Amino acid sequence: MKQRILIVDDDPGIVAAITPSLKAQGYDIAVAHDGDRALALFTQFAPDLVLLDLVMPSVHGIAVCQQIRQQSSTPIIVVSVKGAEADIVTALDNGADDYLVKPFRLRELLARIRAVLRRGRSEQTVIQCADLVIDTSRRLVQRQGQIVSLTPIEYAVLAELVTHRNGVVTARQIVQRVWGPQYIDSTDYVKGVIRRLRVKLEPDPSHPRYILTEPHVGYRFNHSE
């Protein structure tokens, strides 16, 4: 069964440039040129991945990202001309899994799509800490008996911390293992994901119990609780 990609972009040139190549790679494609249509198509088309522009008519891309995240963990790659650090961090904090600045090389886009779609692989194990249960064999996370919905990138980062739970993992190591070596200097990606994980998993995100920061070193998963 073909994997489905929803392209959300009001620039017909971008859509025309990438659609044939994505189809040639075996993906099934749907296109929305504004935010309202994107949200409608998301429900109808049920994509495996969303390529999302930020500045669009009707609904801004960040709002689209937020609304998708309220109902789904489907991977989202933001593709935008806005390349400032603040724009990238805002998108990641609001649920985006990756961020690509226009103009971009088609080969890089295809590589990022493949990377996002295959993320989250880890050793098979079950870790229980107080009211938190992480079952990597089933890719299942529960808190107080309730399933926690994580995006693929959130799960991938958590899986890295759990896999290396007996030590500290640096932000650069997480970036390299989850995003790939070409992102080695993009450590802000990790900060945004860690913030989101703490909101979803910690009893008190401002005083984390499970995902600890080791100052000037990295992060550690505390499984002794």
Score class of each variant (00 low, 15 high):
Gln176Asp: 15
Tyr155Met: 06
Ile147Cys: 08
Phe104Thr: 04
Ser58Thr: 12
Leu161Phe: 05
Ala171Phe: 02
Asp28Trp: 10
Cys129Ala: 14
Val50Ser: 03
Lys191Pro: 03
Arg139Asp: 07
Arg69Thr: 00
Ala91Glu: 03
Ala111Cys: 09
Glu160Tyr: 00
Ile76Trp: 04
Glu85His: 14
Ile62Asn: 08
Arg4Asp: 04
Gly13Cys: 11
Gly13Phe: 10
Gln124Ser: 13
Tyr189Trp: 07
Ile153Gly: 02
Arg143Val: 00
Val89Ile: 12
Val50Thr: 00
Ile62Tyr: 08
Glu154Val: 01
Leu117Pro: 00
Glu214Ser: 15
Gln124Thr: 11
Val133Tyr: 06
Ile153Ala: 08
Tyr183Leu: 05
Ile7Asp: 07
Ser224Met: 12
Ile29Ala: 14
Gln142Tyr: 07
Leu22Asp: 07
Ala86Glu: 15
Arg107Gly: 11
His207Val: 12
Ala91Thr: 07
Pro20Asp: 02
Thr151Gly: 09
Arg138Met: 09
Arg138Glu: 10
Ala130Ile: 01
Asp135Cys: 01
Pro208Gln: 03
Gly192Asn: 09
Gln70Tyr: 03
Glu225Met: 13
Leu110Val: 02
Asp97Met: 00
Leu212Gln: 14
Asp185Val: 12
Leu41Trp: 01
Val8Trp: 08
Gln176Arg: 15
Val8Thr: 02
Arg112Cys: 04
His164Tyr: 12
Ala17Asn: 12
Val148Leu: 05
Ala156Lys: 07
Pro47Ile: 00
Gly35Val: 00
